[in-house]
């Protein structure tokens, strides 16, 4: 199986999982109700999952922890993104400026 075929199958499987979460409760209407605690758990998946992804991604460089902001420009770019996201609530501004900061630091500092 080629890599492209494998990735197409991966995409279809992912689409199937995503569709399952959308369709299951519509299909089960009235037969199953979500437990009370589940709503809080769903809400908590956002901070838990995305912090677990973001933090290691920002502070590691080539598989190792890199906390020196002079070497690791992602730290500054992530902080800029966090402040902009929090203050502006504007995805476009946050994306463009923080990507710009990362590019500029790479160009300036090398």
């Amino acid at each position: 199986m080629s890599d492209l075929q494998r990735l197409w199958l991966t995409a279809l499987a992912l689409a199937g999982v995503a569709y399952f979460t959308r369709f299951s409760m519509v299909a089960l209407l009235g037969k199953v109700t979500l437990p009370v605690w589940s709503q809080r758990m769903f809400k908590l998946t956002v901070p838990a999952v995305f912090m677990a992804i973001v933090l290691p991604g920002v502070i590691t460089l080539n598989q190792g922890i890199a906390l020196n902001p002079v070497d690791n420009h992602r730290i500054a770019a992530a902080l800029v993104a966090a402040v902009l996201a929090w203050r502006t609530r504007n995805m476009l501004v946050t994306m463009v400026v923080s990507m710009g900061v990362l590019w500029a630091l790479g160009w300036l500092v090398g």
Partner: peptide, 26 residues
Amino acid sequence: PTVSFIFALSTALREQDDWAAAVAAG
């Protein structure tokens, strides 16, 4: 993706339990 997820976090971190989940996960 990192920027997108930081944006998602900025809207999701509201209550104490959100912060607790985020800090522990991080």
